[in-house]
Design a protein around this nucleic acid. Structure first.
Lengths: 255, 255
DNA sequence: CGGCCCTTTCCGCCTGACGGAAACGCCCCC
DNA sequence: GGGGGCGTTTCCGTCAGGCGGAAAGGGCCG
């Protein structure tokens, strides 16, 4: 029997998918195991990928994603355009607040962090660029959710919500009310929903002044300094408006 | 005749490679043309990639790199670890100078930009994250070159150097002297080598205090403010030392 | 020395990829 | 409206290239 039921291109993708966030570095047999491919097949595919530069080998013989693939992928418009437009504003925001500034987009029912600015003076966070979270678990996620299509909102509200901390909102009714609140007000404060020690302030980024919501911008502060959150609304709003307009400008000139 | 001489995995990579920096977005037939694949083949491969999330389709029907691939690729250790360690220091550096701060690694005879910090108060630059330049053309590149293996230096010195501006050093003897200078001094000032309007200050980032050079950190200022460059040496050195130590710490704890 | 695990190479079988061709859809120009 | 050009999508017969079992090679450890 051959192929294990997956097309040739599929094998490449299976192998690439093995390098997820928890496993940035893997050995050949790990790859074979977790993809279900025969070792010899995995070997060949990996070798091909490596020859092209999509994978690289560490001194210890383990494999990881190569610079070439990173390069290609970093051209991804969903992130590249956004980052380019947002970076200067995020920068200003960081300088004004010295808190962790984050930018995220929604993909399906998940949130993906796209860019972040953090210095020595801001809270240490675990969330790296490229990390996913269920939309609905975080302040930024809920902002994105509130502006997502109706059916998607219902889908999330229907599924059970994971309680990350004792404060996490898990009641669909409360969450629904929060989504309404988010649509009414621009800025949303999310209190210790994901971690006991952090409070997030988030707002939607649009394409142009009144265009569709394409991302969420957030600031994360230590929970002990929660009262700071109030003062962050204004600078956050300024940044969000700046980015939205910049995105609108770029979208227009791109045509 | 089939396969156009390339293995199945190769086709996937050919298609991905079509999405280079100049072509973040392509139509199916463009892909077919520039990879040399038959349209029907390209169609099938693209469809498979899209089903997996490696490619996405815009409303106008054109294709571009998808979020899923970006995610996988953003785990690339060469960049991820470096950025994580460097970001806070780059941040401090930006705040101290308000100039364009850039981080780059070397791959073969080229330099790849890995991270940058820029705000409204710094020079506008064309160099995006992921862009390549011949090492030897830029200040940061020369810093990396100076600390690269001998034979690679010779290779670059042997090849003709492209003059980007009237000031670009193209004489191998002069360049060789610069490389010596870089190894003696820590910081290198590169005057209008890549663009008429910018001056760069660059320094090598090591792994640990005295480890191998893994990246270069640079500041780019407007050429008219070139005298500023002098004052940037100290903050740049502080940042570089900070990053180097942080990288050393991480390398040790990773074992 | 033998057992274990990972990596690499080899090879014959067979299936799934290949691309030519044709249908489809769209736009523009006559 | 009709026709030509261009891009996309689907279909299908052929056949070469991918597949994985097996075995050899190489460390490591007890």
């Amino acid at each position: 029997m051959s192929a294990s039921g997956v097309s040739a291109a599929g094998k490449v993708l299976q192998v690439l998918a093995a390098f997820d966030r928890e496993h940035p570095s893997r050995t050949l047999s790990e790859i074979a195991r977790c993809t279900g491919l025969a070792v010899s097949t995995a070997h060949r595919v990996v070798a091909e990928l490596a020859a092209w530069g999509a994978l690289e080998r560490a001194e210890d013989g383990s494999w990881h994603v190569g610079l070439r693939l990173w390069e290609i992928a970093s051209g991804c418009p969903r992130t590249q355009i956004l980052r380019d437009a947002a970076l200067p504003f995020m920068q200003d925001l960081y300088e004004a607040t010295h808190e962790n500034v984050q930018l995220a987009v929604r993909e399906g029912t998940e949130l993906v962090f796209v860019e972040r600015i953090a210095g020595h003076r801001s809270v240490e966070l675990l969330t790296m660029v490229g990390t996913r979270f269920p939309v609905g678990s975080t302040g930024m996620g809920r902002v994105l959710l509130a502006h997502a299509p109706r059916e998607l909102q219902e889908e999330v509200l229907a599924a059970p919500l994971r309680p990350w901390t004792p404060h996490t909102v898990t009641d669909p009714r409360t969450l629904r009310a929060q989504l309404d609140l988010i649509r009414r007000e621009q800025v949303f404060v999310s209190d210790r929903q994901l971690s006991e020690s952090t409070v997030a302030v988030a707002a939607p980024v649009r394409i142009g002044r009144a265009g569709p919501v394409s991302a969420a911008l957030g600031i994360v502060v230590a929970a002990r300094g929660a009262e700071r959150a109030r003062g962050l609304r204004e600078p956050l709003l300024r940044a969000v408006h700046g980015i939205s307009e910049e995105l609108g400008r770029r979208a227009r000139t791109a045509l």
